[in-house]
Amino acid sequence: MIQDILLPALIIGGLGLLFGLGLSYASKKFAVKVDERVDLVRAVLPGANCGACGETGCDAFAQAIVEGNCSALGCPVGGADMVKRISEILGIEVESEEPKTARVMCKGSIDVSKHKFDYSGIRDCTAVSKLYGGPFACAYGCAGMGDCARACPFDAIVIEDGLARIIEYKCTSCGKCLDVCPKNIIRLVPRRSEVTVTCSSLDKGGAVRKNCKVGCIGCRKCSKACPADAISYKGTLAEIDTGKCINCGKCIKVCPTNAINCFSCNSREKV
């Protein structure tokens, strides 16, 4: 009776012990030395595996940082805090970078921009742009079919009234939307600079005005109003030098077409 219970238990237990000892011996004998800093760096990385750094994922990126093939700055998602912690782990200085955000340089939603024709094809920006530049009269404006929203790994882009809008607190400036936008109207700008010219049209002032109610017509009122001399012109399109801009908001007040807008001003006093 006792043998019926004891023997099986001994045999199974003995087998388990044997395999366990064998495995622990093998794991010592065939141990692989891994740089412990790789694990430390990996723990600090965001872990979204978005691939914005150019590596296949956060594991590969951690490996590349430790081996010195990549800078921690290659990860646009983690921000300055992550860079600081990685430089502590590696014991090297990595100059920190200003936090950035993506912005759509267009305000031409359905109700303010003119249409050339009705479009009922594939809901895809690239496809739309291939068809006579899209249904919008302005050739430079947002196609509004949401290629960028689909490409965003962080759900930071929404399409409202045929216009892409970036939810800046979610944006990690990974730059995926920049790559897919066929109109090239999304740009990475420093988060600090709140005032932005939300127009990309290089058309002459009259043409812009005909096509869109909120386009930049190149009237130069803003550059005259700017106390910091931060506004220059690319043809008839105003451009704000984010290095010089002091976010005073004077250009926003004088702009006759509301083509200059303030981002993240809503939380503060309206300029």
Partner: peptide
């Protein structure tokens, strides 16, 4: 065991 061997 196979895992240990492969890793090495």
């Amino acid at each position: 065991f196979v895992e240990i061997i492969l890793k090495k």
